[in-house]
């Protein structure tokens, strides 16, 4: 346990040290921006910037990769690509719109449109059934109407 904490601390130190080493403000902003577009894989299910664990080793490791890449002059897509190579697709906050993962993006839209078609169809069928249905009832006789009015007063009072 103690040893593990120590290793974590070393990582934090390493990351902080790397961070401290001459990043221009512009580079720092870039690192921050990329941190919003890559997941922390410690199990927190948030992005690197949002990970709630202050001394998260995973976050530090990933950030170190980003910093190294940024220093090497890579732009954001390239850094992300590098992260995906190193850690897998799960580092992306949402699935890439390619191959099977494309269905993730398409299906909700298909569902929405399909639902619309069904809803419009239902209203249409309701309307048709109405037109084909029995014609208007003849006016009810006055006695009945009087009884209805009386009952209505009784119920609603």
């Amino acid at each position: 346990m103690r040893a593990r904490i120590f290793i974590v601390l070393v990582f934090v130190f390493a990351a902080r040290a790397a961070l401290a080493q001459e990043l221009t403000p512009q580079q720092e902003a870039e690192v921050h921006a990329i941190g919003n577009h890559a997941n922390c894989l410690c199990g927190c299910l948030t992005t690197i910037n949002e990970c709630p664990h202050p001394h998260c080793a995973m976050k530090a490791q990933e950030r170190a990769v980003i910093i190294a890449d940024v220093k090497a002059g890579d732009n954001e897509p390239k850094v992300i690509q590098d992260l995906v190579l190193k850690y897998g697709v799960k580092i992306l906050p949402s699935p890439p719109a390619k191959g099977f993962n494309l269905t993730a993006w398409i299906l909700p839209g298909v569902g929405l449109l399909g639902g619309l078609v069904v809803a419009v169809d239902i209203t249409r069928r309701w309307r048709k059934a109405r037109v084909a249905g029995p014609a208007e009832q003849p006016a009810p006789d006055p006695n009945l109407l009087a009884a209805i009015e009386e009952e209505m007063k009784d119920v609603l009072s």
Partner: peptide, 11 residues
């Protein structure tokens, strides 16, 4: 696909 993906807030 035997690949783990994350479906997160952006999605």
């Amino acid at each position: 696909e035997h690949v783990t993906v994350t479906v997160g807030p952006p999605f």
